[in-house]
Nucleic acid binder design. Structure first.
Lengths: 203, 203, 203, 203
DNA sequence: GATGAATGAGTCTTCATTCAT
DNA sequence: CATGAATGAAGACTCATTCAT
């Protein structure tokens, strides 16, 4: 299925990818049929199978693309920044911004976790994200800015907290991502305890 | 479908509920067919439709039961405890313990979020959970133990962080729930910043 | 797919088997769709998949049944006969009679040979047939009634000659099987050379 | 579709014919798609439909070519030979040799018989073959070398026997064609009865 | 001559649900 | 209560064929 595509072909492929993403996110993976996707673009059924091996492969491709895109965004955000705490902050901020722009992706990930066959693809992406965070956390521990706790716990805590706030505040309540990011960062850095140590004052 | 059931009937119903939960969690909701469920119990298809209106209603019922059970567990854990911080701690701890015992439930929730028709049922449960946490948080703010931040953010942060650690450490890595709870509580209370203010000392 | 069937179920299964055999023989395996088969019986599509795993398995089942039935017929025909030449004769005769009654089967075999996935099932049946003939031929050689040639060649020669005459004379030209059998036996026993050694005079 | 072709065009056509023959023989007619054929040659779909009206016509063409080629081979083999028995022998021998070189063709014929639309083309070829043999047989009967039996039976017996031995011994067991021809001729001429009348002594 | 793209009817198969017994 | 049987809409996917470029 590694066809060489003309520019028109690439465009079609993109259309399918985008439309399918939208439908999967709105309706769910199973309730969205291939027929629905091609009808949405007003093309014949064969077109779908010209560009993809099948529904499952299409879904995996969507996941892969999203993970790549998010990561690229994060990397760009922390480029040239040395302070580990600051890198964590920027990572959270860019994730919030990206998530706000790619609302669809959240549900897709959510769903992917519920069927064994999609889990590996997902785990791959999460492992990368975790490794990225861990690197900053370890730097932070080394220079005394971050408490000496298992970085794996910290990484997953950040991931989980961020993900949940994205869903509830950005997607469900349309709070501006920058605002949500502030709160997330505050909680990540200092927890809920009172007695602020004057930490965050970014952006 | 509110049949009055004999005790044998109740048992059957429970078997169906449990077996379906297990299959849904392992295989996913859609890939698990009613046929598979009844075959797993070695009964005819009629049995299923005798006890349930259909597959969808069965799933909703599973969701409802799980939410109820978790909540009951949490309530029992904090019964008679006044300190709000302590109540949050106990909530996290009991959630971890319950999640460890009900691994299947996580995926079901995950999936339910991806299809519009299941979201309302889900939201209902989460709203209750959030309200519970918020109550403790507000008490904590009032008595100065918790930083004065929007309790909603705090509640969802706790929920997201807890959920993620449960999945990764309890379900994927089989870390004992008590241990994971320690870490979760530490992070929730004090964040990742260095400079511990002598907070938690586990039960 | 080893369902326990009620007598009504067994009947349905037989209907499907018989109707499919007929359509496969008339139209060919591929041109005959499952839809056509179930429509022919005026039942829903699900019925087919209730009784069979799929089209391919159905076809294999038909082959197996036919081979079994033919063999049983042959065995019955030579039961209690000792003379090997006579046994060969009776084998040919009963084959001709059976083939005349089961015209459909010929084409199915024909087709099965052309797709790799059906060949094993076919070979199994032919191996049995060849072994049966070889046994008689070896007896014949031992008692001096049959020329001392590799029995494998003889067996396959008989098989090939018989099969061809069945097709052309019984199926295409409607010659009575008994008559075709006479000719086949004469040719098998004495070849085409002139100078008859007064062999066959049976039935 | 009687295009005038350049020499390059003729070559392309031949490539398609040969590759399709191979695939049809290996995989079967239906399971082999036009897409597969053109991909195998690394050309576009248009090429196929430039040279052929469609898949069916291509198949018929393959059939026709093979029959022609086999016949030409047989004719050349018996050229100038007068003895009818000898002519039958040489026919069998050349058929075996040709079949050994064109293993693919057997399955194609086999398949063609199973679909009504291909039968006429096939019958045409077989009729010619039968007529050829009958001519020799009649000569043989006239000069007293062949037993006075319906030549049609004899012709088909020879055909059936030869075909089967080709399949089993040449194609399945890789016995040299000359050797198989010996056995075939012996059985055709003298049958299986003991008491050889000193017939064949191979070329 | 040749290609990539498109078509869409048609294929096999699944499955939630119903129902006679 | 329970079962085997039946339904049929819907699903994913295939493929011979056509056509603009």
């Amino acid at each position: 299925m590694n066809r060489r595509l003309t520019s028109r072909g690439k465009e079609r492929r993109r259309q399918l990818l985008d439309f399918a993403t939208q439908r999967f996110a709105e309706n769910g993976y199973h309730p969205t049929s291939v027929a629905e996707i091609v009808q949405g673009l007003g093309v014949g059924k064969g077109v779908f199978y010209w560009y993809f091996d099948g529904k499952e492969q299409l879904f995996l491709e969507i996941l892969r693309e999203a993970q790549q895109d998010l990561r690229r965004t994060q990397q760009k955000a922390i480029e040239g920044v040395d302070d580990p705490i600051r890198r964590v902050e920027l990572g959270i901020r860019s994730t919030m911004a990206w998530s706000s722009d790619h609302a669809e992706y959240y549900k897709l990930t959510q769903f992917a976790m519920t069927e064994e066959r999609f889990v590996p693809a997902l785990r791959k992406g999460q492992d990368v994200a975790v490794k990225d965070i861990i690197r900053h956390v370890e730097d932070g521990i080394r220079c005394g800015a971050i408490r000496d706790t298992d970085p794996l716990y910290i990484a997953h805590s950040i991931l989980g907290l961020t993900t949940q706030l994205v869903r509830v505040f950005i997607h469900e309540r349309n709070v501006p991502p920058a605002e949500v990011a502030e709160e997330a960062i505050a909680l990540v850095l200092d927890g809920i305890h009172a007695g602020d140590r004057s930490s965050v004052t970014s952006s």
